[in-house]
Design a protein around this nucleic acid. Structure first.
Length: 887
DNA sequence: AATGTCACG
DNA sequence: ACGTACGTGACATTC
């Protein structure tokens, strides 16, 4: 079926300009807006496969709107030159890609779009309008959907008449009235002073239109009435200005809008000129990649000296091992504990080798395996942690990880989503690698290619590693992160691998028993719920549940999601007083979660080989420096509610007579905050080892310790959490279920007492603005490009991140240090105790009987001594016959 | 593949 | 007026 996409070119390029970091090409031209625009365009094309497509632009400076009102758009800031320059670039690129553009003298883009959509509506054609301008909502109809661009240009919200009704309870036409009343500062449309969205909506719900409101002022009183009567003309004129003109003369438009796909032969060179390598790749046009440095080296790369090693070449390789410093272990699958090893790429500066896995296992390859396991043979690679695990489960020990380029890339920019080797080649101007998907195929089509292709591909990976290493060393030095890399993250990666290989034993029988208990509760709850509702439905479907609760039972709608009714726990709590079934649903939800994720999910992860679960810690995911845990995630095992906490009983020592020993940092984040803010009062609290939430309550409410009741302490605790997260009055009000005003008052009280904390919060945001990044105590860095964004939400988010990251990140630094120290202590003392898990502020060990006393002393001492701050660190230790008992 | 929900620190 | 707490991963349903 025909599908037409209409893009508001001016609007989108503006948004892209402000949302994207200021990219420039090697010629020094800023290209960020063109880039942002194009990525969005490609996504639209991929997702919606339009048969017809245009980008509309404003033409000329004066439009017919100025004829009646010369200040129209008067308040708007002049377009920055960095953006104006990008208009011709974008228009050229669109032409080369084969995307039609419309520009009609005297009209704005939205008039063109409005007129085309009117014609399409009349012809019954499907249209999607893409813009960031809410005005466009007035064009929504049975056939026309408006895609409002959000979050820069990365997300869209789709609006038809129904969504508009749900959100505003207005028809599309009434959007014009809305703007007539509230105005629009960015277009210098005045509206009625003192009327914002809230008031405008109220008026429209009552009177229907601007005309209706003005005719009905008699029913109003006070200031509101005065304002409306005084500014009646303004409202009428504003409505006129906000009305999109839909009668632009268009000839032969439909044929001119036809879109048959991106024209590769002309788009390729155009994208190459702009140096949009990732887009070239995305369009499989990499052949056009710029003939810059990279391409020159690419030619050289074509003649890389690669040897596919067979039995006869093995000896040669073995004698070359001393010169080899980079390797790549090619394995498949996401979970490295279950990965198959496919082969090995090995590189010296001069020569590159590929060793198929079968050969690596042969008797003759013993010296190669010895080299792999030799801690004195330093190796560079990409994700050596994964390599270590994959080899381990094939019975091949791995050691000597000296330099992991994935880990270094993460430190250099931890927010960049997992940077694969090919992303890094682009970054460092190295020869491109074929994407794995091209070499292996993806999904069901995954297939190991013939030896020649495979060997070349994998050997190029190790060659690439070699090329990256040098440049990263330089960057780590420049950013003062060499120490963090060499003395913390690299040693930690080996420790993590050891913990994961060790795994933690799970008592499968007990877990199954627990599953039976849950099963009994679930079937009882399900039966009761169906009974009460008078029908059977899928309780796990929020959609079906919403239907039952809000339509069949007629409960009030508290909150909506973008696809329907929200039924999350917060909503259900509010509904509980209305209907008894809601409690049962809440209970069902919590037990069902335990059953599916923690009983069934965990059972699936227990290894057939070891009877344990072997999680995989990822060291390059969390932007703050924390670890994350997968397959299974052992960092979110239930503890808060007793029902769930029982799950912890099945985590047991792997040897008879041993114990589980756990220690967790007490209030590490607030202690870190006390240190980095230098707030004297907060430091005082920790120097005296006081209960920090009680102390906060005393200070905020101005009472003595014995006057602090549980409610006051609870509030103080929420404030403390808020402080760590980068507080907002709204967030706190939600958390405590109080008004925003009260929350705001709490926060003000808090900052009056904890002046040092206020200073820190102010300073860190200024710092971030100036430098573009924030750091932790150990110099871990996080860039915050949105800290200067014009968009309030983006900027606010960046500001909260600026406040939170040094705190959360320093806490992460500290426990990582403790892990390195603890590993060393165990080794030096020849202890048999083993580190098994890390849960952000907690370390879990299994400990033999005769080491228990020692470990109870040693562990908290090492943790507390990991780093010296101006307040003491404290770790509390506990132990038992399983993880539940160690509380 | 996206969405909603919920487990943890 | 805007629309929010910071950081993750797993599961089931729906598209």
């Amino acid at each position: 079926m025909d599908k037409l996409i209409l893009i508001d070119g001016n609007n989108i390029i503006y948004r892209a300009f402000f949302a994207m970091p200021p990219l420039t090409n090697t010629a020094g031209q800023q290209t960020n807006a063109v880039y942002g625009f194009t990525t969005m365009l490609l996504r639209l094309i991929e997702e919606h496969k339009p048969s017809h497509l245009i980008v509309a632009f404003d033409a000329g400076k004066i439009t017919f709107r100025h004829e009646g009102y010369e200040d129209y758009k008067g308040g708007r800031q002049k377009t920055p030159p960095e953006l104006s320059e990008q208009f011709p670039m974008l228009k050229d690129l669109l032409r080369d890609m084969g995307v039609p553009q419309f520009e009609i003298s005297g009209y704005e883009a939205d008039d063109i779009i409005g007129s085309i959509s009117r014609e399409a509506d009349e012809a019954g054609r499907q249209v999607m309008i893409v813009s960031g301008d809410k005005d466009m909502l007035q064009l929504a109809s049975e056939y026309t959907t408006v895609a409002l661009v959000r979050k820069g240009v990365t997300e869209v919200e789709l609006y038809g008449p129904q969504q508009i009704r749900e959100k505003y309870d207005l028809t599309p036409e009434q959007i014009i009235d809305l703007k007539g009343l509230m105005g629009d500062a960015s277009d210098n449309i005045p509206g009625v002073p003192g009327v914002g969205e809230k008031t405008a909506l109220k008026l429209l719900h009552q009177f229907g239109s601007v005309e209706g409101v003005l005719a009905g002022t008699g029913e109003l009183k006070g200031k509101m009435k005065e304002k409306l009567e005084e500014h009646a003309d303004s409202a009428v004129m504003s409505k006129k200005l906000a009305t999109i003109y839909r009668e632009v003369p268009l000839e032969h438009a439909w044929e001119d809008m036809e879109f048959t796909g991106i024209k590769g032969d002309t788009a390729g060179p155009a994208l190459a000129k702009l140096e949009f390598k990732s887009l070239l790749e995305r369009l499989s046009l990499s052949a056009y990649s710029p003939s810059s440095e990279g391409a020159v080296e690419a030619v050289e790369a074509a003649v890389l000296d690669i040897t596919i090693v067979g039995e006869s070449e093995l000896e040669d390789l073995i004698s070359a091992l001393p010169g080899i410093s980079a390797l790549h272990v090619e394995s498949n699958g996401e979970n490295p504990h279950r990965a198959e090893v496919i082969g090995l790429g090995l590189s010296s500066p001069e020569r590159h080798y590929f060793v198929p896995f079968a050969l690596l296992q042969s008797h003759a390859a013993a010296p190669l395996r010895a080299w792999l396991g030799d801690s004195k043979a330093p190796k560079s690679g990409y994700d050596l942690h994964r390599a270590d695990l994959a080899l381990h489960w094939q019975g091949i020990p791995f050691a000597g990880a000296a330099n992991d380029v994935q880990l270094a890339a993460y430190l250099l920019d931890p927010t960049e989503a997992n940077q694969n080797l090919n992303d890094l080649t682009a970054k460092y101007g190295l020869p491109r690698l074929s994407p794995d998907e091209e070499v292996f195929g993806k999904g069901a089509k995954y297939k190991i290619p013939e030896l020649e292709i495979l060997g070349n591909h994998v050997a190029r990976k190790s060659a690439t590693v070699l090329g990256i290493v040098e440049k990263q060393q330089q960057e780590l030095t420049e950013t003062a992160m060499t120490g963090l890399f060499e003395d913390l993250e690299m040693p930690l990666s080996r420790i993590l691998a050891d913990m994961e290989k060790q795994g933690i034993a799970v008592n499968k029988e007990d877990l199954k028993e627990l599953g039976k208990e849950f099963e009994a509760q679930i079937s009882k709850l399900v039966a009761e719920i169906y009974e009460i509702c008078g029908t059977e439905f899928n309780l796990n479907s929020p959609k079906q549940l919403g239907e039952i609760l809000f339509v069949k039972l007629g409960l009030p709608v508290v909150k909506k999601t973008k696809t329907g009714y929200s039924t999350d726990a917060e909503v259900l709590e509010k509904l509980a007083p209305y209907h008894d079934v809601v409690r049962l649903i809440l209970q069902y939800r919590s037990i069902a979660k335990l059953q599916s994720t923690y009983v069934e999910g965990l059972l699936k992860e227990v290894s057939e080989v070891t009877g344990k679960v072997h999680t995989f810690y990822r060291q390059t995911i969390a932007a703050t420096g924390r670890l994350s845990s997968q397959f299974p995630n052992l960092q979110n095992i239930p503890i808060r509610l007793e029902e769930g906490r029982k799950i912890r009983k099945v985590f047991v020592p792997s040897e008879p007579g041993w114990s589980i020993l756990a220690a967790d940092y007490s209030q590490i984040e607030l202690r870190v905050l006390a240190h980095i803010s230098g707030d004297e009062r907060m430091k005082e609290a920790f120097l005296h080892d006081m209960d920090i939430h009680t102390k906060t309550a005393m200070d905020v409410f101005g009472v003595t310790a014995d006057q602090v009741d549980s409610n006051m302490r609870r509030s103080a605790k929420a404030v403390n959490f808020g402080i760590v997260y980068g507080i907002s009055d709204y967030g706190l009000s939600q958390n405590l279920g109080i008004s925003r005003k009260e929350a705001s008052h709490f926060i003000e009280q808090y900052f009056e007492v904890y002046e040092g904390v206020r200073r820190y919060m102010d300073d860190i945001v200024l710092d971030a603005r100036k430098q573009g990044y924030v750091t932790t105590l150990l110099e871990r860095r996080r860039y915050l490009p949105e800290i200067n964004a014009k968009n309030f939400n983006l900027r606010s988010f960046a500001e909260r991140t600026a406040m939170n990251t040094p705190i959360q990140g320093t806490a992460a630094d500290i426990i990582k240090l403790a892990m390195v120290h603890m590993d060393k202590a165990l080794y030096e003392r020849g202890l048999k105790s083993r580190m098994l898990l890390q849960v952000h502020d907690e370390l879990v060990f299994e400990v033999p009987e005769d080491e228990l006393e020692l470990m109870k002393e040693l562990l908290p001492k090492v943790m507390a001594g990991a780093l010296t701050l101006s307040v003491p660190l404290k770790a509390e230790v506990s132990y038992g016959s399983n993880w539940y008992e160690a509380k």
